[in-house]
Amino acid sequence: MRAYFIFRILNMAGKPKLYYFNGRGKMESIRWLLATVGVEFEEVFLEKREQYEALLKERALLFQQVPMVEIDGMKLVQSKAILQYIARKHNLYGKDLKESVLIDMYVEGTTDLMELFMSHPFLLPEDKEKNIELIIEKAKKRYFPVYEKVLQDHGENFLVGNKLSSADVQLLEAILMVEEKSADILSEFPLLQAFKERISKIPTIKAFLQPGSKRKHQPDDTYVATVREVLRMY
């Protein structure tokens, strides 16, 4: 029994620690990937400018930016590097160089779409409706047709190879984000509909999609005000 409690303490001490705002932004895909591989993590929410300045003073932010993740004795910044590290560590990065570059390509494409969401809360009210229209148009005409064809040509349940990769996880995240703006967005993409249902049923992902998980809601005015205060964005 004593050994069990010692193990639990050590295990808790080894949890990755995520430094970001209490919202989606660039940290959300990192939360998704850690949840998918079943890794518990702690979060430090930046709510005051002083917290951010303390991290700068400690030289914890290599390029003076968040997100930052403490993991495996490192303080990692740059979301792409963090995601690739997690994917490699947990075998979600393909079996060889060719699969890895396909995963990178799909992830980068999905990220381009998701960045439209990240900027949306900070737009002027008169620009938000146009941005939603742009998101829906690009999803329908540029991004989702690509993934529909990839699934059709590949003939497997996943985008790359015949197993789950970080590209699948991020695509599901993006699909659900677009559906928040347009519920019937997948009506013209039957393979993506099936993909969404299939990936959503993976146990760790299914758990992450349940209420009470560390998945974040759509950004609200409080999130925007906090980001502006901490980063002094005016």
Rank of each mutant, 00 (worst) to 15 (best):
K80G: 12
L34T: 05
I30Y: 09
K15L: 05
G212R: 15
L191W: 14
V169H: 07
R2I: 07
K17V: 08
P67L: 01
R8D: 11
Y52F: 13
E179Y: 06
I30E: 03
Q170C: 10
V178T: 10
K75F: 00
L83P: 04
P190W: 11
K98T: 02
S100V: 00
A207W: 11
I71M: 07
F208C: 13
F5N: 12
E126F: 14
H217C: 05
V160E: 01
Q78N: 09
R24W: 03
R31C: 09
K206Y: 13
G212P: 10
M68H: 03
K201M: 08
E179H: 08
H217I: 12
D72L: 04
L97I: 01
E99R: 04
T111I: 10
Q64E: 10
E28S: 14
L55Q: 02
D184Q: 03
V107S: 08
F41R: 09
P121G: 13
N91V: 05
Q51D: 08
L134W: 15
M114R: 08
K75Y: 01
N131M: 09
E197F: 08
D220C: 06
E58F: 03
A139R: 02
R215P: 07
K98E: 10
A60P: 14
S166F: 05
E58H: 05
E180G: 09
P121L: 01
A139P: 12
K141W: 15
D112K: 03
R198F: 08
G14E: 13
Q152G: 11
L83A: 12
I71F: 15
L97F: 01
N91F: 00
R142H: 11
V66M: 12
N157W: 12
Y19R: 02
E229K: 00
G23N: 14
I86K: 00
E126P: 14
E126M: 14
D168I: 07
R8F: 09
V66F: 11
F41K: 12
Y85P: 02
Y52D: 03
Q65I: 02
D184K: 02
M1V: 14
Y143R: 15
R142I: 08
R232L: 00
M1F: 10
T110C: 14
K196I: 02
L97Q: 00
E58L: 15
D184T: 05
D153P: 13
A3F: 10
G109R: 06
N131F: 01
Y52S: 11
A207H: 06
S100F: 00
K201D: 04
P219C: 03
F21A: 07
M118T: 14
I199C: 07
L83R: 14
K57Q: 12
P190G: 09
I205F: 03
E148C: 06
D153Y: 06
L113P: 04
V44H: 12
E173F: 06
L171W: 09
K181Q: 03
D127H: 15
L171M: 12
F208P: 02
A13W: 12
F45E: 08
N157Q: 14
R24C: 05
F158I: 07
I9P: 07
V66Y: 11
S200H: 11
Y223E: 08
L46A: 07
L34W: 04
L97M: 02
L46S: 13
S166V: 15
K57V: 09
I202C: 08
